[in-house]
Design a protein around this nucleic acid. Structure first.
Length: 424
RNA sequence: GUGGGUAUAGCUCAGUUGGUUAGAGCACUGGAUUGUGGCUCCAGUUGUCGGGGGUUCGAAACCCCUUACCCACCCCA
């Protein structure tokens, strides 16, 4: 029986990992510029953490978590999203007594037992950030600027920021009631799903894809119209901050987000170009001012976002070729030459120069072919003659030109050639 | 959980109304060049035609079951 990877969980092979690395390093660079520091929390948490943070009746917790009991009978869950664990760590470390504002980021896998499709996997990786300790709208705007910066750094055209405010504990219930009243009025025009949603989660009807529902809800009241004064001021502050940061956005009153803890600002970065399939949200997030307290911590506001790395990577153009590390390849003939090459490899690699040779006995032609395939800049050709005279034939693979290099007093000449070429 | 599609070489795929020995390109290996890559040419290796059952003289092809993957819905990064 052939053993295969678990459904919805993918291997990242060397050809694909370069793009991931590009995304991660762009993100790390940008986080550093914005003062965000990395935290790493466990992939497994107590089930209760997600029940209380994400929401007991959300689909994520109801039917998408990988939950199991350990050998002591305790219920554990593979994290379906990043925020809950970070908040837990923030509370557990009493971080609010250490610094007034904490700006953290994380990178890692998340797990949801959903049916896989394009851009959606059971194991998926997120890059996310959370800022605790301030409800200043500038911190929201700054985070959005951070995301825009990362997107620009990895060159993903056609990604649009869609912004909304869900209101606070005061105006959100008010909005919900207003919307429910409106939906009751058009109930006969809604699809079956939406009639159900009207009762359970009325906000969801607003992003139904059914044309009839889109039409029926076109004139539905928006959260923005119903915001209380405090929320209105906060939301205006976020937009002013975006203007100061030079980040463009569109107001999208239909963004509701699936997690219970969101308040005030919510946003999505949506891909409008490229073959992304139905899952076109590259990054989503928002403010969650009540979450830290709800999980037993101090009454500290927070705001955060998460990228789906797979989705972001799928937007990066293939022709953005990876830079080749300068490589010198040793092609040898005979045992003495092989030993000679092994010593040279050890010396060069000690100074972080990429150096390779072939394995096993291959013809010179085969070794050169291999060197070409690996993208070697130089090939050092070594046979018995060269070993005897302490020289190598150094072949420039781009020009084909070949010169004899004396190595009796060390490999500095080789090293110099290679680093010279690297700057061309 | 629901619906649709697909499954043939390592990869991408062709394979006629069911017909005898299942193909191409790429990749890989070797050669043309006693110790010189890319381009070209020549040769070679690679298959439980996803699995099981059925129809038939004969099945990669038709039927049934099953598994996996893909896409979409629900929901979401």
């Amino acid at each position: 029986m052939k053993i295969e990877s678990v459904r919805g969980m993918n291997d990242l092979l060397p050809e694909a990992s370069a793009k991931w690395h590009r995304v991660e390093s762009a993100a790390r660079r940008t986080f550093a510029a914005f003062g965000y520091r990395e935290v790493r929390t466990p992939i497994i948490e107590s089930t209760e953490l997600f029940v209380r943070s994400v929401g007991e009746t959300t689909d994520i917790v109801e039917k998408e978590t990988y939950t199991f009991t350990d050998r002591n009978g305790k219920s554990l869950t593979l994290r379906p999203e990043g925020t809950a664990g970070i908040v837990r760590a923030y509370i557990e470390s009493n971080r609010h007594t250490v610094e007034p504002v904490s700006k953290w980021f994380y990178v890692g896998p998340m797990y949801r037992h959903e049916r896989p499709q394009k851009g959606r996997y059971r194991e998926f990786f997120q890059i996310g950030a959370e800022a605790f300790g301030s409800d200043d709208p500038w911190i929201d705007a700054e985070q959005l600027a951070l995301v825009a910066e990362i997107l620009a750094a990895v060159k993903t055209p056609g990604v649009e920021l869609r912004l909304n405010s869900l209101g606070c504990a005061t105006c959100r219930p008010l909005y919900r009631a207003t919307l429910t009243r409106f939906l009751d009025g058009v109930a006969d025009r809604l699809c079956g799903d939406c009639q159900r949603r009207s009762a359970t989660n009325p906000l969801r009807t607003l992003d139904c894809k059914n044309p009839g529902c889109i039409e029926a809800t076109a004139s539905a009241p928006t959260t923005i119209e119903v915001l209380c004064d405090a929320c209105r001021i906060h939301f205006a502050g976020v937009q002013a901050g975006l203007a100061d940061s030079g980040v463009s956005f569109v107001l999208e009153p239909r963004i509701v987000r699936g997690l219970d803890y969101y308040t005030h600002t919510t946003f999505e970065f949506v891909a409008t170009l490229g073959d992304v399939g139905a899952q076109n949200t590259v990054c989503g997030g928002g403010r969650y001012d009540g979450l830290v307290a709800a999980l037993g911590g101090p009454a500290v506001p927070g705001v955060g976002f998460a990228f789906g790395i797979e989705r972001l990577v799928s937007l990066i153009a293939d022709d953005d070729a990876d830079k080749q590390t300068p490589l010198i390849f040793f092609a040898t003939m005979g045992d003495a030459a092989a030993r000679f090459a092994h010593r040279a490899l050890a010396t060069l690699r000690r100074t972080s120069i990429a150096a390779e040779c072939d394995y096993g006995t291959k013809s010179l032609k085969a070794q050169l072919r291999r060197a070409g395939a690996l993208g070697a800049i130089f090939v050092a050709i070594v046979g018995d003659t060269e070993v005897g005279r302490n020289v190598v034939q150094l072949k420039n693979m781009a020009s084909g030109e070949q010169t004899e290099v004396d190595v009796s007093s060390g490999l500095d000449a080789l090293r110099a050639r290679l680093t010279d070429t690297a700057h061309l």
